[in-house]
Structures are given as C-alpha cells and as structure tokens.
Design a protein around this nucleic acid. Sequence first.
DNA 1: ACGCGAAATTGACATGGATCAAGGAAGTTC
DNA 2: GAACTTCCTTGATCCATGTCAATTTCGCGT
Lengths: 261, 261
Amino acid sequence: MLVARITLAKTDANCLDCPIRHRAVCASCTSSELEELNRIRQYRTWKAGETIAWAGENMSFVGSVVTGVATLSSTLVDGRRQMVGLLLPSDFLGRPGRGEVSYDVVAATETTFCLFQRDQFERFLSKSPSIAKELLEKTLDDLDSAREWMLLLGRKTAREKIASLLVMMARRDGALHRNEPGDGLVFPLHITREAMADYLGLTVETVSRQISAMKRDNVIQLMDTRTIRVPDFNRLVEQSAASSGFEDAHHALPETTAKRA
Amino acid sequence: MLVARITLAKTDANCLDCPIRHRAVCASCTSSELEELNRIRQYRTWKAGETIAWAGENMSFVGSVVTGVATLSSTLVDGRRQMVGLLLPSDFLGRPGRGEVSYDVVAATETTFCLFQRDQFERFLSKSPSIAKELLEKTLDDLDSAREWMLLLGRKTAREKIASLLVMMARRDGALHRNEPGDGLVFPLHITREAMADYLGLTVETVSRQISAMKRDNVIQLMDTRTIRVPDFNRLVEQSAASSGFEDAHHALPETTAKRA
DNA sequence: ACGCGAAATTGACATGGATCAAGGAAGTTC
DNA sequence: GAACTTCCTTGATCCATGTCAATTTCGCGT
C-alpha cells in the first residue's frame, strides 16, 4: 500500500509534536490549554475500509484526523450513495451537542484520529473561546466547501467534475507537503474510483472514461492508477470550470502558497 | 404580490417584539445582551429581485433575515448558476472575520434583515459565548442542510428533487406558521421556477414538466403557480426519496411538531 | 510464481434531462 | 384595455451520462 504507515502511540506522543498542531481546532490554544487537551485526548487508528461510524448511530467521541483520509457519505434507501465530505488531516469530526452522527464515516485509507470524549470536549469548549472560535472557523470553511461542491454537483459536466476533484486533491496535498514543481505536480489520490464517483455524483464507469480521456489529451498522466502527474496545473484548473466568484482566493495553489506548518 | 408586506421601522421596534427573537442567533441572549444588540442593530429591507451582495464584494454588515426569502448562489464563468443556500427568517448571513462574500445574495421576495456592522458584531461575538454558541449551532445546521442538498444534487432524479424541495418548503413554512391540516397542506413557494431550477440543478423546463406530472398524478395541486396544496403529505415524502439516514429526526414535520415561536 | 478477488477499463446500448423552439398566462405600464 | 414583459408550460429532438456486460490490471496471500 502506498500510504505511509505512521503509527502513533496512543498516549505517548505530545501535542507539541503533533503533525496537525497548527492547523487543527487546537491551533490557537494556549500551552496550559494544550496540556489539558493532552491529558484527555486519545489517538485511535482505523484501517482502510473500516467504518468509523454509521449514520444514525450515537458517537461518544469527537476529534480530528491526524493522518489518513476518511469520507462522510449519505445513502438513499435504494442504495444510491453520495459522499458529502472528505476528512483530511486536521479536519474535525463530530458535532458538539449532538451525539447522533448524520452520515456514514468511513476510513478511506488507514486513518488516525485524535479523539476526545464528547462531554469532556464540550466542557472544554465552553471554557475555551479560542477553541470555540477555531471550531466555528472550521465549520464555516466546511460550509464553504460544501457549497462549492453543490455547484459542482448541480452544474458541472463529468469532465469538469473530475478536473475539479484533481485540483482539490492537489491543493490539499500541496498544503501539507510542499511540491517543488520540477517536472510537473505529482500527487496521490488516496481514494478508489468508486469513492471518486460517490464524491462527484457520477458512476465509476464515467469516472474511468473521463480519466482516460484526460490522459489521452495529456492533461494528466497516471504514474499508477492512484497517482496523478499534472504537467500543466493551469490547464487542469481551466478544465475544472472554476467559478466566477472569488472563493478560491482563500485556497492555496500548491506552487504559490502553503499554510506554514 | 402574495408576500405579506410587513414593514418594520428601522429603529423603532424592540428586539423583544422581533418575530425571530427565539430562533435567530440572539435566541439565548440575556436581556442585557439584548439591550446592547438593540442599540447596534438596524433593519433594512430589499425589494424582490434586488441583489443584496455580489460574490467577491466586501460586505461590512452581517445579520439575520427577519422576514422574506433570500438566495445564495454561485455562478460559473459561462453563466451556469447554482443556488447553494436559501435564507429564510431567522437565518444568518455573513461570516465573522471575513468581509468578502462568497456568493451572490439576492432577495427572492421583499426581504428585511436585522443587520449589524461586522466589526461591532465581531466584538460582541467575542464577549458573548451564548451568541457564539448559537452561531456555531446555526452554522452546523447549515452544513447539515448543505450536505443533504449535496445528496439531492448528486443522486436524486428530477422528480425526487422537486418532491424534496416541496417537502422542505412545507416544513420550513410549517415551522413558522402552523398549518392545521383540514383539507391538506397548503403552502407558498415564494420563488420562481427559475429559482427552483437553480436550486435543484435542473432547467426551468424540467421543473415545469415535473410539476405538471405531479399534478397529473394528483400528488400536488396548484392553487396558483406559486401556491401548492398537498392532499397527502406522506405520499410527497415518499416521492422525495428521503435518505436512509436519520437526519430528518431533527426536522419538524409540519403536522407533528413546530418550534415554539 | 500462481491464483484469487477487488479495482479499473472499455464497449454497446438506453435514457433522463438538456436544448431549442413556440406559445400561453399573468402582471405592469401607459 | 392594449402592448409589454416576465414567467410558465408544452413539444420535438439530441446528447451526456447511466446501465449492462465483458475483459484487463493490480494487489495480495499462499
């Protein structure tokens, strides 16, 4: 498997060494707050394909993705499925004040969470304005992403959907690592074609066909089925039918900017 | 025009008389907090069709819808448009900490907002945990709605989309008024067929055809083009392909529950 | 190295919704 | 109350994507 198997000790590691220290909900905590979080947090890892929580189930934990990728998805009674969110490192899972989870949460790759008992976290939340602020900020970002995705689902063509997904993956990957673009941008997809289809509101067949078509047109190359090389990132962005709004001003192009880690 | 023309004096009215007093971000404010809000708030009304803010523009206000309906929508460079949110009374517009608005905001009907200067609101927000909590709560609700809509956009058929929209409109209407179901449920749509199409990721033609088809099948009746009568609400819900999850447990069926006003 | 199952690709065909086009209904202006 | 304009409906046709089916490739365990 391609995914780095970083295995973190459940309690040993310190928040200060945490890879998502500066990007998760705890980003702006004071050191005394961090100490308290450090005491009540727990790491837990799910293997690729494992279900972390079922829609409707009660979940007593909330927390952040430390490493890996997890998906949020909804299902209609007849089995049609739509992914409604992607959890990447530093993303938060769980809703303070509500145990019941609204979507199936599945580990797409091996995924490690930094978890808190929900009631403990809620108590902490009500004491700590900084974490409340970060959580609101994150939720607003999630809302923006969800709405951007609505535009994609409602109005973009299959080709544009695939391009948009690749752009997003490249950006989110670039925000973590830092891709020095020597001979193009290379990044991993992490997810299966089926997961892509679920995310984009397409079928696997259409995803596969469009990827083949983009390969033929030399917009992308496949190192292997899950690793994309993009010779010309701008060309890819063009094909994604980026919206005329200015939402993207808040995202980082992998080459140009990256949140300081 | 069908919309009630409640015209509120800009500064006269008191928060205590506000129609959204118990459902807006200020719902759980203390009376001293309310007094302060009362001093810094302003009512402002937009006529149907007027643009409240353009995507990318800087907006120095945030606030809540008091009466009316406004839409949030994104546009692709070539003009394809997708509505990404609907603002009904008590819904909040604006993002603390960011002036730039991500979507076009348009008054679908005559719409009155209760507005605050953004910096004033932010100052208030950082002092008032109760309003911060409400805002987080609202944002999480918005996120849930957006995700439910993603499922609709990605996976539902035209028929199911229309049914879902009608169910939503009926519910949101029912949460405000209280429909005593004598001879079926009657509610106004407020929005044009075009707005419906924008919301559902369809064309006007398809919206119109599906509405005609549902009329033919006696799932709905039209009192006039914008007023729907539903003889059997459950039948409508069935046609909406409600998801197998449990998200709906948090919404009120018009007949069964309604938030106390 | 072999074989198995899952994932991905490709082809042939079907269809739901878009597009193009025309006309009707309802509200507004002079 | 005639002429617009905007909104809505309906019909005919087309095409992007879904569906069904077969085959290939890849990853992994033995």
